[in-house]
Design a protein around this nucleic acid. Sequence first.
DNA 1: GTGGTCTAGACCACC
DNA 2: GTGGTCTAGACCACG
Lengths: 133, 133, 133, 133
Amino acid sequence: MKIPIQVSADSSAPMYLQIEEQLRALILSGELKEGTMLPSIREFAQGAGCSVITIRRVYQDLENEGILLTRQGTGTFVAKVGDTNRERYRRDAVIAALVEAIETGRSLQSGIQEMRDWFEEALKKVYTLDDGE
Amino acid sequence: MKIPIQVSADSSAPMYLQIEEQLRALILSGELKEGTMLPSIREFAQGAGCSVITIRRVYQDLENEGILLTRQGTGTFVAKVGDTNRERYRRDAVIAALVEAIETGRSLQSGIQEMRDWFEEALKKVYTLDDGE
Amino acid sequence: MKIPIQVSADSSAPMYLQIEEQLRALILSGELKEGTMLPSIREFAQGAGCSVITIRRVYQDLENEGILLTRQGTGTFVAKVGDTNRERYRRDAVIAALVEAIETGRSLQSGIQEMRDWFEEALKKVYTLDDGE
Amino acid sequence: MKIPIQVSADSSAPMYLQIEEQLRALILSGELKEGTMLPSIREFAQGAGCSVITIRRVYQDLENEGILLTRQGTGTFVAKVGDTNRERYRRDAVIAALVEAIETGRSLQSGIQEMRDWFEEALKKVYTLDDGE
DNA sequence: GTGGTCTAGACCACC
DNA sequence: GTGGTCTAGACCACG
């Protein structure tokens, strides 16, 4: 299974976080099904153009989160996440992100209606930007 | 002029960023009017319970952003930000925050309608949380 | 004699340097003739909207340069500067400024001809900007 | 990569500004190509005979300007500057320097033709001085 | 009294 | 090993 990960050197975010985020998204969105075996650390590292240590950390963090599972001498697999859990996880993650954005707005004195308008603009921005790419 | 700044040591964000963010919000929201003299770095540092240098960095960063203005030997002041600029700045900041949240959602396979629903939930969450405080 | 001095609070340059520079220009350009009595420190300070100390420093610096002359209990006067000296001073000051600019250019790999072209552009910029003001 | 930086303690300009200016010139003139890794702050500091912090400030300022890019734990690199941008940057910098010099001249009552003559003299001065070095 | 620069030294996050 | 943050303390320039 080839994992499509993009690490951008421009981002200020550390590599391991960028990768974790993308892997997590792939798993929680269902694109990587449970039981799937992930590439070996070395393989992954080579593909992503980064150090083995970085990937080891990614696998370990996600294992601690309970969405990966490492079996000694065999490999690393996508753990079972009940569908209910997956939905809950997804929902929580998205709402948390939105709440954060709204709080920024509120601290800058945005009213609720203004925020709704701007949310629609932001939506448009993300999705038309998507077409262009 | 007393500046109401909250620095929480718990947050992983560095102090200077926490303070910058809050000060920026106070200025852009218009609560701190242009020309207002800010407390001296030493005064502010004492109030915030941190080093003088941390505050100096905050003032300097915001000066580079163009929203503060410091004159040696005299003090640090809120710079003139044309009302138009302030509006633009505010709008840009909020939309950027929303775009980021929406992108998280999209990477987790949220559809547009789902995102709209969750946005309303998030709104409710922030504002009732506000009542409780 | 009223002295037309402009101190801009926006400039990062310290007040006393801004004032010195302008006064020096007024004297060396011949607008303030030798023997002219300058306003008292207090008067000048009030006019310029700054502290007495600042003006005291200006007068003293220019006296050290030999272009002002203070007579105890009488006042401060523009010193005699021979016409030859004045010309030399003017020329030196301008050439020094130009040399500095040229050195910046050279360190950025500008060729001589390019610099000549840009000098003409800069000239145009300064003088049309002048019309507009 | 060895960076040829000269810091003179005589100059009244702060060290960090002297270094920034020279580094900026090296990058914008194309002598340091994009992607080049700069020496670590500790190395550079030792070479320049100053504190680590001074160099960190230099790197950070230039990163804010967008001409350096630093990745934690990896190092500091020359950022991508489109050739067009580099030209624009160079041109702006040189013209700004010339404009400043011309304004000094104008405040000392130099006419345009006189300034042109003196500009040629200044040019000669800089370039023969160059031969002598 | 203000801010501006520079120092040395500590501890953390990242690769 | 890299850079990132924060500290305390010294000295200078400015008003």
